[in-house]
Design a protein around this nucleic acid. Structure first.
Length: 880
RNA sequence: GGGAGAUUAGCUCAGUUGGUUCAGAGCACCUGCCUUACAAGCAGGGGGUCACAGGUUCGACCCCUGUAUCUCCCACCA
């Protein structure tokens, strides 16, 4: 068969993915084998693949493919998330462009549009994952809003409500005026902004509530909320304001009469030491308001414009109202001064709108008791976080967990199953029919109709559906203990970003213990954030994010996968550089060429194996088994990046540069059968080790290197297991490798061609040289003869490995001065080394205190160094 | 403001319960090679006071204290 000189990645990747799909190689059904399961962190249904997904899913695919090749029943469950805020925002935008307003068309019509959008754009991202080589069991694809998942969410809500864990309450929440919804604390990002601090005069009122000439100056960054002020607060220990006790003030612009209250919360050193209190629009003020029983005046509409209660600037946007307020204050001589000021404002993670603290009726989930097992089982390592350092952050959060606001003022999502009765009371039930039954019971009114009930308008937070994911994908909420859940749950590994450790990971753990009585996964691998070379987060607006599919086209999926993994130790940020994908592609090329070399040899079963090949085969076998053991350990520790590097070096350095060069027959000569067989076996084993990282090229070569039956695949073949290896043999061989490098270096400095033969004399003092490997030395260093000598050799190039002297007779006159200098340097170094060893050995506390093994080692070092010094001195003397 | 982590080669990172002169890897860099598997390559090479200052120890990149710088998380200072 003719092997193409260039590997055609595009063709190959398309072909093999199709092959895997056709033969249902990703499919998993429960059987007698040990399960290995990963549930995908569901990407937004209408999202597109970005670099973060690439990294995350490559890692999952590596883990799942390795498990599959290790005899486990590997199941990777894919799916998407309905992402209520993000998706609804997109649909609203799309409709807006068509001149359609969501409130005009109503809930039902809007949801139709949303589903249309979902069907049209949903799943694109899953198709993109296939390009990456993701071996998901696509038959299991789930969506957080499909029927099973929707019903699971509702069931859980009702259950938690019945357990008394869900309640309704008025709370200060983070309001996103653009999306017109509440967002959780975790979805607010605080950023520093340059703003102004306005100093506003509040006049003291007399007994008739008329302004006197006395006033208090209050500093504020938000003059547009003055209309909602219901008090001014000062510190009780602040003598400047002691005279205000019992006084009232006139709120500027609206002339409301409000009390002066005293609370130690106020920092006398900030601003003027006087704080305006707007309970409706500031969390701290709200708490002050509750404490001092102040009136709460909400002056905003849900879109961030002012309402009638503001009395002035009604209908104006909050930022416009700020400008207008400043102007009005100025005109009325109420503005004492304005300062530049840096403060923080909260931005909505989804819409980037400035968050407005707002009072609102929301649904909450009590977290304290629920989260207890989730905390305990991470602290006791029942669930392991990798890297472990995230446990601290996790602990801190779980110990300070607050009730979870689970309602969202949106339509796209699971609608809260609370049904209101005409009198304002409500019942919670899985269906309207059930609700009606309960309502009749509750009210004693049997005439109630379905039409008398009104379902809550809000939907549930998206995380309230994704926290059930590891269970709901197996329908384990609706049908607890079904065969699939019993088999796959708890799942094995979860791969996700640390940013959603609390949003998602912690909550899945909570739900897992509540609804399955067990952890949802055993290990959590936390990846880093993908950044560019300048450490900037990759984002669309910066335009610094490469288009994943273009990268794949350019460097192949295998290449990009390797590129992602090369720079991604767990938990560290990924500084992505396209050069890494290039490195990945080059590696693929290297593998292809090694394969071409091996496949190109003619086999002659009548010739015996040359000695150097026998040694090479023996050596590589040991090298390979040591590497497999190392790689296994790295996987166990989730050091995926290092495991890849180990395979990379094994293939490139040990296999290609050393092994293949050692066994390579002379040009156009055949290879003996035994060596060939061993080589193909090694190549196959290497392909297996490489497969999780580079699924496509390894499949291509695996299929070409031997005849395979239809339906066979490397992805379902067995990963090589670590056998024992001979450490001494490897150590001895390292001496040979080092000697070869030295000889090559001498050839280079002497301008000798590889074909100029030379003779090597070896003078071994401490048995560091294993003569058995001589044939390799001869072949790799291009030597005529190798002989052992006990005499010193003059006037030749020489070098030492450990305490063994090597003399290379090249026939070229040596440069005595250069040689002498070289020896002197080495002598000085070795003497220093010996001195440090002797210092230790002459120290009685070291000899008696250190472990015997360490002392032995030092003695060996002493012997080696002394021998080396002696040899060097002799050589130096010989030169003079 | 509170908490966590980091600082090792030009860059990104390893360094496994103190013990080979232990200072490593990959990339980048330098030099020589188009040697019929591979120039997307081969061979060779240079490069670091392990952030800084003390301390513990026979011995410190590793343990302790302090300093500096950085990153992340949490937090209601107008």
């Amino acid at each position: 068969m003719e092997i193409p000189a260039k590997y055609n990645a595009i063709e190959s990747e398309k072909h093999w993915y199709k092959y895997w799909m056709e033969h249902k190689l990703f499919k998993s059904v429960p059987d007698h084998r040990e399960p290995y399961c990963i549930v995908i962190p569901p990407p937004n249904v209408t999202g597109v693949l970005h670099m973060g997904h690439m990294l995350n899913n490559t890692l999952q695919d590596v883990l799942i493919r390795r498990a599959r090749m290790s005899g486990k029943n590997a199941c990777w469950v894919p799916g998407t998330d309905h992402a209520s805020i993000a998706t609804e925002a997109r649909v609203v935008n799309k409709l807006a462009k068509e001149g359609i307003n969501k409130f005009e068309i109503g809930r039902e019509k809007f949801l139709e549009h949303a589903w249309d959008w979902t069907h049209k754009h949903g799943g694109i991202i899953l198709e993109q994952l296939k390009k990456l080589g993701a071996s998901c069991d696509w038959d299991r694809t789930c969506f957080t809003m499909d029927e099973a998942r929707y019903e699971s969410v509702i069931k859980v809500f009702v259950d938690l409500y019945n357990k008394g864990l869900i309640y309704r309450g008025v709370r200060m929440i983070n309001w996103d005026p653009q999306a017109k919804t509440a967002v959780s604390d975790e979805e607010v990002n605080y950023t520093d902004v340059k703003s102004k601090l306005y100093y506003v005069k509040y006049y003291v009122a007399d007994d008739n509530n008329k302004a006197t000439s006395d006033f208090v100056v209050v500093a504020t960054t938000r003059p547009e909320t003055i209309m909602g002020d219901t008090a001014v607060c000062v510190n009780p220990n602040d003598e400047r304001y002691a005279h205000l006790k019992g006084k009232k003030l006139v709120v500027p612009m609206v002339n409301r009469i409000v009390p002066v209250i005293f609370d130690e919360y106020v920092d006398p050193t900030f601003g003027t030491g006087a704080l305006k209190v707007t309970p409706a629009h500031d969390l701290a003020d709200y708490e002050l308001g509750m404490k001092h029983k102040l009136e709460v005046i909400d002056i905003f509409n849900d879109d961030g414009t002012l309402n009638e209660k503001a009395k002035v600037f009604v209908g104006e946007d909050r930022f416009r109202a700020r400008e207008l307020s400043v102007k009005m204050l100025e005109e009325n001589n109420l503005l004492a001064k304005v300062e530049d000021y840096n403060n923080k404002v909260g931005l909505s993670e989804r819409t980037n709108a400035v968050i407005e603290p707002r009072l609102s009726t929301q649904w909450f989930l009590k977290m304290k008791d629920l989260s207890k097992p989730a905390l305990d089982n991470v602290l006791n390592n029942n669930i392991k976080l990798h890297p472990h350092k995230f446990v601290n952050t996790y602990k801190h959060w779980m110990e300070n967990v607050k009730d979870w606001c689970i309602s969202r003022q949106l339509w796209w999502g699971q609608r809260i199953p609370a049904y209101y009765l005409p009198d304002g009371d409500y019942v919670v039930a899985e269906t309207a029919e059930e609700a009606l039954k309960m309502a009749k019971q509750k009210t004693g009114n049997n005439n109630l109709q379905l039409s008398d009930l009104t379902q809550d308008e809000d939907v549930l937070d998206t995380w309230f559906s994704s926290w059930l994911w590891p269970l709901s994908v197996f329908d384990g909420i609706r049908k607890p203990n079904n065969d699939e859940v019993k088999y796959y749950y708890p799942t094995n590994d979860l791969v996700t970003a640390p940013e959603i450790l609390f949003f998602w990971v912690a909550r899945m753990i909570i739900a897992g213990y509540e609804y399955a009585g067990d952890k949802p996964f055993r290990n959590v691998y936390l990846t880093g954030i993908v950044r560019d070379k300048q450490r900037r987060k990759m984002s669309k607006s910066l335009g610094n994010s490469p288009e994943p599919l273009e990268l794949i086209e350019k460097y192949s999926a295998d290449g990009v996968r390797v590129g992602m993994l090369l720079c991604s130790p767990a938990g560290n940020d990924i500084l992505y550089d396209e050069a890494l994908s290039e490195q990945g592609r080059n590696f693929g090329n290297k593998i292809w060429n090694a394969f071409r070399l091996v496949k190109g040899w003619k086999i002659d079963s009548n010739i015996p194996s040359p000695e150097h090949s026998k040694i090479a085969v023996e050596w590589f076998n040991n090298k390979l088994n040591k590497a497999i053991a190392d790689i296994d350990r790295m996987y166990d520790e989730y050091r995926i990046s290092e495991a890849l590097m180990a395979v990379y070096k094994l293939f490139w350095d040990d296999f290609s540069s050393w092994y293949l060069e050692m066994i390579k027959p002379e040009y156009q000569k055949p290879i003996d059968a035994a060596t060939y067989k061993a080589t193909v076996d090694y190549l196959e084993k290497l392909l297996h080790l490489l497969h999780p990282f580079m699924p496509f090229i390894t499949e291509e070569i695996w299929q070409l290197i031997d005849t395979r039956k239809e339906g066979e695949s490397i992805m379902i073949s067995q990963m090589p297991k670590a056998q024992g290896y001979n450490e001494q043999l490897l150590t001895d061989f390292d001496v040979i490798i080092e000697a070869i490098a030295h000889i090559r270096n001498i050839r280079k400095t002497r301008n000798m061609s590889y074909k100029d033969k030379a003779d090597l004399l070896i003078r071994d003092h401490n048995k560091n040289y294993n003569a058995r490997f001589e044939p390799v030395l001869i072949k790799m260093a291009g030597l005529e003869t190798v002989s052992i000598t006990s005499e010193k050799v003059d006037n030749t190039d020489s070098f030492m490995v450990l305490s063994t002297e090597f003399y290379l007779k090249t026939g070229i006159t040596i440069d005595k001065e250069a040689e002498s200098l070289k020896i002197k340097e080495e002598l000085e170094y070795t003497k220093g080394f010996l001195a440090s060893v002797m210092k230790k050995l002459s120290n009685e506390r070291f000899v008696s205190g250190a472990p015997a093994q360490v002392v032995e080692m030092e003695k060996k070092k002493q012997a080696d160094a002394e021998a080396k010094i002696k040899a060097l001195e002799e050589r130096l003397a010989a030169l003079n």
